[in-house]
Computed example of a mutant assay.
Amino acid sequence: MKKCLILLLLITIKAVGLAQEKPIRLGVAGLTHGHVGWILGRENQTDMVMVGIAEPNKILANKLSKEFGFPMTMVFDSMEEMIAKTKPEAVAAFGNIKDHLKVVQECAPKGIHVMVEKPLATTFDDAVKIANLAKTYKVHVLTNYETSWYETNVKALDELKNGTIGELRKVIIRDGHKGPKNIGVSQEFLEWLTDPVLNGGGAITDFGCYGANLMTWIMNGTKPLSVTAVTQQLQADNNPNVDDDATIILTYPNQMAILEPSWNWPIGRKDMELYGTKGAIYADNPTQLRIRISKGYSQFTEETFLLPQRKKPFNDPFSVFTAVIKEELKLPPFNVYSLENNMVVIEILQAAIESAKSGKTIHLTK
């Protein structure tokens, strides 16, 4: 009898373990985003399994099917059909930014969690609607940024909190590349990326969101007092309907941030500089960080750190998404993925667009 009870207990423990290891069923909404390869090429991970794709453009779907090896039988014309046929627990949005609201409207009432590619929305009104849906139906809505995977950004904030460079005074964040057409993005991606409605703007939204996201994280959710922005169109032939270069200035009670999103950088970049009362931190790229400490007027010491990738689950956005859904990970308030952070991001971007159009500084309400 005792042996039977032990055997039954072992079987129960094993069954519970297998249940916990069961992969999250993921649906993909859209294939036009250039970042979609991040999920289509994620075959070697077992925490999440792709069960369906919603994409009406069958030429595009067939092309990606051949490239990544997924069967066309899992491609559906609409999200409604994909959800009904495949019963996903989560959906990753890889279409235009304007459609993020539609994705959440379709998924949230069914209890389906959502991860969107940055930014969260094209307007603050849409962001509020998304947040209300997430709250009403108790689902997670995360926003993915490549810079969320950078160990250098994490170390930079840790060093700042530890007082290494003293009190923070200024942050400069630069993001971008040569421009969508110049780097050869797909036609399907280019069509909406350079559309002021579907993308919400040009470089100001495409890359301005990175700086707004990191700054909101650094400031632990504190909104800037004011937003001032200037935009230019330096490649009118390539980007006739949107800006391709922007400078955004954010002011806080004791700090200032300068965001420089652009489709005119000669070399692609995603870097950040933190300036304090005692020194500076330079997060040059995903793996290299430098710390300079002042030693007089212009002298300084410099230490360079070559860092590894972030540890699991933070090395991969879909691992983070899975861990949050399974309640293995609780993101802190105003974490870079969080809905709270990305609500502030959209408020900043909307103010920046308004400032650039009006030529005036926009003051945000608390």
Rank of each mutant, 00 (worst) to 15 (best):
M1Y: 15
L10P: 03
A19N: 10
V28F: 14
H33N: 04
M48F: 12
I53R: 04
A54Q: 13
K58E: 02
K58Y: 13
L64T: 08
D77I: 10
M82Y: 02
P88E: 00
G95N: 00
H100Y: 09
H100M: 06
L101M: 06
K102N: 11
V103T: 10
A108G: 02
K110H: 13
I112P: 04
I112V: 03
V114F: 11
M115W: 11
P119W: 14
L120I: 12
N144I: 11
Y145R: 00
W149A: 06
Y150V: 01
E151F: 05
T152W: 11
L168Q: 12
H177C: 04
V185S: 02
S186A: 03
F189C: 11
L198Y: 03
G202E: 05
A203K: 02
A203Y: 04
G208Y: 09
A212F: 07
N213H: 02
K223E: 07
V227R: 01
V230W: 13
T231M: 15
T231F: 13
N239S: 09
L259P: 07
N264C: 09
E273I: 12
F300I: 03
T301W: 09
T304G: 13
F305H: 15
K312F: 15
T322R: 04
V324M: 10
N335D: 14
S338I: 11
S338W: 01
N341G: 02
N342P: 05
I346T: 11
I348F: 04
L349S: 06
Q350F: 06
H363L: 12
T365C: 02
